[in-house]
């Protein structure tokens, strides 16, 4: 069996192009499986997977859990708010306690960037990153690229714009890494306060104008405005933009904007959607949007990743 070049999936940065290709070809197989009447395969029988979510998540957690169950793995779930953990037990202790119950793989979401890299040095289990702060969310980027590829074929020289809150987004960073490895060109677009100052050092184009970005691109990925992160954590912190109304006026994707384009791009959104903020309902539900394909592909991508990284799987 072909294997990935890494032991864990910490980020897209650690994957090679051939790793990504292998994940995609495995995903093709699993997509076929999950469209059968009997959706379950025994690939990960006797493998125990712990889903550790130190930050809220609905769809990523469900998607991973479903992928694990379709592969016949044994699954345990753990959710905790990061604050309750920082009050007492350390991350290493929490995870080691769970591993002591003979767990083979850990799927983890954590609010702090690098938490997975940190953990990988101190524990003995395969780690899959389901999001670490504003760092990476590799399975999301893989499913996004996979979904784009379904529509456009090879992504080489395809133009993708990522719109919105790039500063707080792990999806943006993972997508930039992934799309660049596949040869696509990437632009980020949003209010200057939500773009990291040194973002162009990653080799992406930068635009403050949504119309200009839409003219340029083949694919537009609309990011969720993370309402909980816009006010800052402290009273002294200044908001990144004045109001959702103004954000929508400047960066909201509406049919009106799309109708003025020569060529309408494919629309993605990693979810959950704030309808009427970054994207209008009309656009989200239109034929141009492949948002629900992304969700479907998410399960297959996660099955592929789990399968390829599982210890001794066959």
């Amino acid at each position: 069996m072909e294997k990935l070049s890494t032991q864990h999936l910490l980020g897209i940065k650690e994957l090679s192009k051939s790793d990504i290709e292998l994940i995609f070809s495995t995903t093709d197989n699993f997509k076929e499986v999950i469209n059968r009447p009997i959706k379950k395969v025994p690939s990960l029988r006797d493998i125990t997977i712990a889903n550790l979510f130190f930050e809220n998540s609905t769809r990523t957690k469900l998607s991973f859990e479903l992928a694990e169950k379709r592969l016949s793995a044994d699954v345990i779930n753990f959710s905790a708010s990061a604050s309750s953990v920082t009050k007492g037990e350390t991350l290493i202790d929490t995870v080691n306690n769970i591993l002591a119950m003979k767990v083979d793989m850990v799927v983890m979401r954590h609010p702090n960037p690098g938490a997975h890299a940190f953990l990988s040095k101190h524990i003995d289990a395969t780690i899959i990153n389901a999001g670490d702060g504003a760092h990476e969310h590799p399975t999301q980027a893989l499913l996004d690229a996979f979904s784009m590829r379904q529509e456009l074929g090879d992504l080489k020289d395809k133009k993708v714009v990522i719109v919105g809150d790039i500063l707080h987004s792990r999806v943006a960073l993972s997508n930039i890494n992934c799309l660049q490895k596949l040869g696509a060109k990437v632009m980020v677009c949003g209010p200057p306060t939500l773009l990291p100052k040194y973002i162009s050092s990653l080799g992406v184009e930068v635009s403050y104008s949504l119309n200009e970005a839409l003219e340029w691109c083949d694919v537009a990925m609309m990011l969720r405005i993370q309402l909980e992160r816009q006010g800052g954590d402290r009273k002294t912190e200044v908001k990144f933009f004045p109001s959702l109304r103004e954000y929508h006026n400047m960066y909201g994707l509406t049919m009106d904007r799309l109708s003025k384009l020569k060529k309408i791009p494919i629309i993605l959104h990693p979810g959950p959607i704030n309808r009427g903020v970054e994207i209008s309902s009309e656009v989200a539900d239109s034929e141009h949007s492949i948002i629900l394909n992304q969700v479907e592909n998410g399960v297959a991508i996660r099955m592929a990743v789990l399968y390829l990284l599982a210890p001794g799987s066959n």
Partner: peptide, 15 residues
């Protein structure tokens, strides 16, 4: 430090 590395790591930068 706020710079290329912090952007790559998703860590909050100190300008």
């Amino acid at each position: 430090n706020e710079g290329e590395t912090s952007t790559m790591l998703g860590l909050k930068g100190i300008p």
